[in-house]
Write a protein that binds this DNA or RNA. Structure first.
Length: 228
DNA sequence: TGAATGATTTACT
DNA sequence: GTAAATCATTCAA
């Protein structure tokens, strides 16, 4: 797997999108996040991927959002932060999920990142995902990051990044940080219902999942809703 | 103080 | 196809 986008070796890292990009309504921002690159710099190494699947969570009205009803708790506080903030939470006691906060500060919206196409640090991601487990073998990059919990494990993302900014260009030496940067946009964007929120009634019928229709790295088809 | 549950993944039948 | 893993968070009492 080789990346077909910048940065080339020695190239200056591309600037993240401006905060205004994320200050729009989540339903506008979510599809525009497809193609952006998410990079994770941690003490155990650097890895990155191209975002190919997202979902919009639009509190306080959206019953599927953790911020439904304006509920502001220790967990959900990051959703109320400024656009470009990172919201990370633990689900099922096992898996981290990473979101990009959108809308004006105080509007509890976020874009859930559901799948990325691995770009840099693939060996590190494989090690994080499959050390102590059976590796899938030949199609090594497939199944690596095609789910919200999988990509967090591969990138080394957990709640220590909750509330951090995703748009900062400069960091202290030794800091761990996540960063967004421009990437190749999708040729076609597909939409569907969101996954795993059947409890949300009418809100579960919203077509608020967006993915790159031409990417082989979206999450597995068995989870896709019949409406695609 | 305790019970219920979840924006999932994995293994097993 | 079904079920186990596993625990922070939330809400009720």
């Amino acid at each position: 797997m080789t990346r077909d986008t910048l940065p080339q070796p020695g190239a200056k890292p591309l600037e993240p999108p401006p905060e205004a990009f994320f200050a729009r309504d989540v339903l506008e921002v979510a599809p525009d996040c497809l193609g952006l690159e998410l990079s994770a710099y941690t003490h155990t190494g650097y890895a990155s991927g191209r975002i190919v699947e997202v979902e919009a969570y639009r509190g306080p009205d959206d019953r599927a959002a953790h911020s439904y009803g304006g509920r502001r708790t220790a967990r959900t506080a990051a959703m109320f932060g400024p656009p470009g903030t990172c919201y990370v939470f633990l689900i099922y006691g096992l898996h981290s999920h990473v979101n990009i906060v959108t809308g004006a500060e105080g509007a509890p919206q976020a874009v859930l990142i559901r799948a990325i196409e691995p770009l840099d640090g693939i060996e590190l991601m494989q090690k994080r995902r499959w050390t102590g487990r059976q590796s899938p073998g030949s199609k090594a990059a497939s199944g690596l990051c095609d789910g919200p919990g999988k990509l967090c494990q591969a990138l080394g993302i957990d709640r220590r990044f909750n509330g951090h900014g995703l748009l900062q260009a400069h960091h202290q030496p030794g800091d761990e940080f996540l960063r967004l940067s421009p990437g190749r946009p999708p040729r076609r964007v597909a939409i569907s219902r969101r996954i795993g929120i059947e409890y949300a009634g009418e809100w579960a019928k919203k077509l608020w999942r967006f993915y790159d229709a031409d990417s082989a790295f979206v999450s597995s088809s068995r989870q896709r809703s019949p409406t695609q």
